[in-house]
Nucleic acid binder design. Structure first.
Lengths: 347, 347
DNA sequence: ACGCTCTGAGAAAACGCTTTCTCATGATTC
DNA sequence: GAATCATGAGAAAGCGTTTTCTCAGAGCGT
């Protein structure tokens, strides 16, 4: 019979609201009230409670709060691959913006396993107040079925038929056309597109953009080469690029372009003197490749923070099924040193 | 009257354990039992419950579970800057490894605001079952005070006096010495170290490593230049590097090296013919710079997954205050094309 | 001085789950 | 056939909060 009554169930529990209440000589309810400033509490009592709280270093248990309040102050983000600078940037922007409003972010990396994405998203949603979904390869049908269960939801680079989920997308079709146009303006007549993953939604968009480009420029040769979405696939495509005879290369993204740059350099092919190369995304590294990479800049930091803003809007207007903003970003061609006029056209 | 008794508090609640119980004609407890496979349940009843569960698409509410079980199956990671590839890689490795064991990760980006780190870490800890802390600039005193509060905790690139928190660190001192040695072996006699942030623990380690190097190689000139930890600071140091007259440059990390590479290229200075440059970390991009970067490779992916392993060990042996593993990684010099013998020593 | 309103604190319910406790039922043993 | 046991399901407590409900007491007007 030392200090307390009997030892608590668990020997030394974390300090809880009950301890503060006891110390201040009030009820749990009152402690809760002063901690949250909800109802009016006698200033004297409030001070006593606050004193007890700091003395005991009391910090409310978030899990208990979450259960009572029905919200976790956390949002989830599911990304296909955390190694991709684009998603890293989105995650970063999202996390910082959310933090400013007192929210945290829980990450779910699907490791490109498309079949897991639905499940991951669902789990994330149950733990969080909302989900930001990046699922470039998920089928339209699956997305359409999943979306309503995830609400509040914001989609990155995807849209649904129902207009009640906000989406942020980049107009890849337009961007790639502008890059192609840039090359043509420089004088290139033989282009090649080093494509990305087959089922990627953004790759499809680039493809339709290029179809349009072809229609408008029947005189330009435009080859399609299969590739991937990372350095290595860019690097591996070096031979194919060289033997294509194209002088202007549109890489799927900056990573691929960098891999290609490195491959060309190894073969002694000069960029941009012999071949011009463009990327896509304008990741931070693009400025520092040699030569600095001409690319289509998507405002990647804004994407993350805007995603948060859209999420916040939904969380606040909880319930109302208003139609949500569909934001579309237009990439801006960022001309650097990896593109130039081609050498005198070979006879 | 209608179906149920009265309308529930909230009109259409998410389906809960009670709904399943009602549908299967059993008690909440039984549903919980079959969902968790804890106690023995009559196979027939179990089947009925499971059927009801799938029919109603019942998914246990994680918050309720967390409260009851006293664990969240989530760990937190606090990083100073999510834009840094090193932390991105750690985060990624951690997330993937943790996911394999059914854990999620909550991120807290302190945005380099050292004063917030303690608070962020504390909040993360309250929401999670453990915390991985990357706080290169936190003072030793603060860390020492914070650490016991956070347990289970794993430290990255920091250690505490008490040996009961596992830590993973990279031997930056040794790595930088080996790089310096590499340059000397190539024939360089005038070196410069482009240092990182002043209060960074890992920068200090490099500094003591270089002190040791100086002691062992009194004949080698080694200048210290102030820098930062990202591209831009590397780029901005270009002039200082050039006017230093050094032929072998040890950059704080790969980012700085890349910035420098780009700056030198703009000035028409050839790497490695005119100046040799080394980085540190071997981030994925290092392989694809032009020229590919000689650097000290730290097994960055392993760091993340090992961090998880150490965390898991602590979570499992809950309570036992055993002394914990202190892992130290030795960087391995990765020689690429950014270093070579210097031009004939100027008279 | 009585009753009225109003302020503010405690009791208790609610959040959604797990788990201990309790007890009924059917099986087992002498 | 009665006493003993094992099995397994329901009742209820507990996890740590918030919030509604209730009610005591103070302040006010008449």
């Amino acid at each position: 019979m030392g200090r307390g009554h009997m030892a608590r169930r668990n020997t030394n529990r974390r300090v809880g609201i009950a301890d503060v209440a006891e110390k201040a000589g009030v009820s749990h309810a009152t402690v809760s009230r002063v901690m949250n400033g909800n109802a009016a509490v006698d200033p004297g009592i409030a001070a006593r409670v606050r004193a007890a709280a700091v003395e005991l270093k009391y910090q409310p248990n978030p899990v208990g709060r979450s259960l009572a309040l029905g919200k976790t102050d956390t949002i989830g983000i599911v990304v296909p691959d955390l190694a991709n600078p684009t998603f890293q940037a989105i995650l970063r922007g999202l996390s910082i913006a959310a933090a400013q409003d007192g929210y945290r972010v829980l990450i779910a990396d699907s490791s490109e396993v498309t079949s897991e994405e639905s499940i991951l998203a669902g789990e994330a949603r149950r733990r969080c107040d909302g989900v930001v979904l990046c699922a470039p390869r998920m089928s339209d049908a699956e997305l359409e079925e999943l979306a309503p269960t995830l609400h509040p939801l914001v989609l990155i680079n995807r849209t649904t038929i129902a207009t009640n989920t906000p989406s942020l997308s980049v107009d890849y079709g337009q961007g790639i056309q502008e890059l192609a146009q840039h090359l043509v303006t420089l004088g290139h007549r033989r282009l090649a597109f080093l494509s990305g993953p087959e089922h990627s939604a953004s790759n499809r968009q680039r493809l339709v953009g290029l179809d349009q480009f072809r229609a408008e420029h029947p005189e330009i040769e435009l080859q399609m080469l299969h590739g991937g979405s990372n350095f290595d696939s860019g690097h591996e495509s070096t031979e194919a690029i060289i033997s294509s005879g194209a002088t202007g290369i549109l890489a799927f993204n900056d990573l691929v372009a960098m891999g290609l740059l490195s491959g060309l350099h190894e073969r002694g092919i000069r960029v941009p003197e012999d071949i011009s190369v463009t990327g896509f995304d304008d990741i931070p590294f693009a400025k520092y490749t040699t030569p600095p990479l001409t690319t289509a800049a998507v405002p990647i930091n804004e994407l993350g923070s805007l995603a948060w803003r859209r999420m916040r809007e939904q969380i606040q207007q909880a319930g109302e099924t208003a139609t949500q903003a569909q934001d579309e970003f237009s990439p801006r061609v960022q001309i650097r040193k990896s593109t130039a006029a081609p050498a005198l056209t070979p006879a």
